[in-house]
Every structure is written in C-alpha cells, then in structure tokens.
Amino acid sequence: MLLTYRALKRRALAKSLRITAPNGIDESSYVRIGGLDQWISVRGEDRSNPVLLELHGGPGASNSIFTPRTRAWERHFTIVRWDMRGAGRTFAAHGPAGQGELTLDRLYADALELTDHVRARLGVPKVVLLANSFGTVTGLRLARDHPERYSAYVGTDQNIIAGGTDTSAYDDLLDRLRGAGKRRQLSRLTAMGPDHAAWSPEEWSCYAKTVTTTDPLTYDTMKTVVIRSLWFSPLHTLRDLRAYLKGMTFSEQLGPQAMSLDEYAEGTTFHLPVFLFQGAEDVLTPPEPARRFHDQLTAPLKDFALIPDASHFAAFRRPDVFLELLVGRVRPVVAGVGVDG
C-alpha cells in the first residue's frame, strides 16, 4: 500500500513538472567538470529569464529532490541544479572510489568550471549564484572573487564561519540538551568541545544530527519537507535514494575542512549585490551571525531578510516566501531594472 501511494504521488508530481512553454527548457545530463562526469539539470519556463545557479548543501545533499517544491521558481528564473562530486547522481555514477579529490578547493574549482559551462550553454554573461547551507561556504568565496561571472549572490541557511570565535549555536545546543535532560547527548557534545575545526567527520555529523533532532521546528522540517521530498521525488528511484544517502555519508569529510575558515579575514568587500535570506528560527546556521556579517560587508547593494516559520532549509520549507524575495528583491537587480530603496 505504501509503495502504491508513493507511485501515485510520484506520477502526479512528474506531471506537474512538465515544461511545455515554447521558450522553456528542461535538460539534464552528465557534463565533464574537473575531469569527472557530473550531473546537471536546467529547467525554466522562459530562456530569457535570469539564470540561477544553485550550490547545494549537506555536504552531499543534492537539491534535485526539491524540484516539485520549487516548481513556481521556474516561471521567473532558469534554475540550474548540480549534483556536486560526492552527491546525488554524480556520486552514484562513479562510487566512492571514483569521486577524485574531495576538498573545498576542488569544489570551488568545479563550481567555476561549471559556471563557465552554463554561461556558454545558455548564452548569458553572468548568472545569479544561489547557495544554501554548506554550499554557502563555497558560495561566499566565489562571490568575493568573481563578480565578472555572477550578477548577484543569494545566500540562505548562510554559514558564517568566523575562525571559531562564534560558539553561540553550540552553546545554545548544550542549553537545549540540559533543559531536556538529555544527559548522554550532553556528555558527548561537551566532550567534543566548541572548536568545530578539531572535530572528526563523525563528530561533525553527530553535532548536525543532534541540532536537527532536538529543535522541534527543524525536526518537523526534516520530516515534512526533506524526508517527504526524498521519498516522493519523481526524479529518483529507490536505488537513486540509497545512493543519495550514501553520498551524504561519504561527503561528511568535507564538514571539518570548512570549520577553520574565517569569513571576516577572507574579506567583507564584495563587488556584486549580496542578499542573505535566513530562516528566522534557524538553530543550525542562526540568523544573527549572518545579520552581523551583512551589516559589516560592503557591496554595491546588500539586503537581509528573515523568513518566518522557518528553521534550516528555509527556502524549501517556505518556497513561496523565498520566491517572493527572489522576485521582489533579486530579480529587479539582476534584470537591470533597479529596486526601491
């Protein structure tokens, strides 16, 4: 019965994803990036719309499962989704041994190569760079370094890694564990200490899972948004989903690599518009560090917004609100129209 319901739901979602507009685009294939065939999809109702290139989070958690939830975005943007090395179909095609070097520098180089491929394929001088969660680590670096390739940077679930000086999210987690009487979890997290850069991949994963399962809104989002999107994705078979989850486990090695970064030391000057849209109740990448970074950065235009009733995965829990922000604040800028204020 469960599999029958899944089949019917997937069929209905697949129908809703059909693009029939005469100037639309719906392409997906492997593209040679960084010496590795990597999975790319391009979807939109009108090729003349601004191109939006996503950097997914996780690490290793492809955004392709959210395609039905973001279907309305495709009326206003051409959405490019990429399964990075270690993620999704790219991981499935090559297996753990075939991913090559898995480092932040390698992902950065891959992203640049992909950006140039997309610009050439779609015939556009620049693309909007949209990064979420762990993808924002690479996203901020790209935005700082390459305004010639990107018309704007949009970060959501934005990580602000300040060289280990901000331990507020860790401290808040310990407070939640104390309040809930979770002594075993409290003992383990306390023993790990607040220095994220000293954690092993397993400890980094433990921290993320503990944050997710001890905050009611985040846990609800995992169940109703992330898990449901995985289970009912019309783009993924059960074998695909197994590979998806294995890719996330494989990619956990990237987590500690990022924790010694200092976004302030890397630079707060940007030569392109910067937008940060955070879940108001996010406990994994809290809004306050992102707001402080926003307040201190300089850019031709900058904007910050909170998404209500949203924790982590804010763009996918509230895709309607996120689209309003994209259309109302980002699209006029990248389309060259200008904005109020």
Rank of each mutant, 00 (worst) to 15 (best):
E203A: 12
T20R: 12
A97Q: 12
T190D: 15
A7K: 15
S229L: 06
A290C: 11
L323G: 10
S133I: 05
G24A: 14
G155Y: 15
M259T: 04
E27A: 09
E202W: 06
K182A: 13
W231G: 00
D145S: 13
P216E: 00
Y170F: 14
D37A: 13
R81A: 09
A14S: 11
A169F: 09
L114I: 07
L301A: 06
R141E: 14
H196I: 04
A280G: 08
W73E: 03
D157K: 08
A315L: 13
R119I: 09
A243F: 12
L36V: 04
A131E: 01
P332S: 04
P286W: 00
S187M: 05
P59Q: 10
D240G: 02
R292N: 05
E263H: 14
Y153A: 00
A305S: 13
L53C: 08
S260D: 09
A208D: 08
P201H: 00
R43D: 02
V337C: 06
P234W: 08
G34N: 10
E101T: 11
A14D: 03
G86S: 09
H76V: 05
E74C: 08
A87R: 08
T20Q: 11
G100A: 01
S62A: 13
S311Y: 05
K126I: 06
R144P: 06
R69V: 01
P289E: 01
I65M: 14
G341Q: 15
K15S: 05
P194N: 01
D46E: 08
Y108P: 03
L130C: 04
L325P: 03
A12K: 15
L284I: 12
I65D: 01
A21V: 04
D83M: 08
P68F: 02
E54L: 10
M222Y: 13
V51S: 07
A290T: 08
D157A: 09
Y5H: 05
L129P: 02
G139K: 08
L235P: 00
T167K: 10
H117E: 11
M222C: 03
P286N: 00
L53F: 15
A198W: 06
F304V: 01
T218I: 06
T213G: 12
P300R: 00
L53S: 08
R176E: 02
I40W: 02
Q99C: 03
L297Q: 01
T221R: 06
I25W: 12
G155N: 12
A315K: 12
D240C: 07
H56S: 14
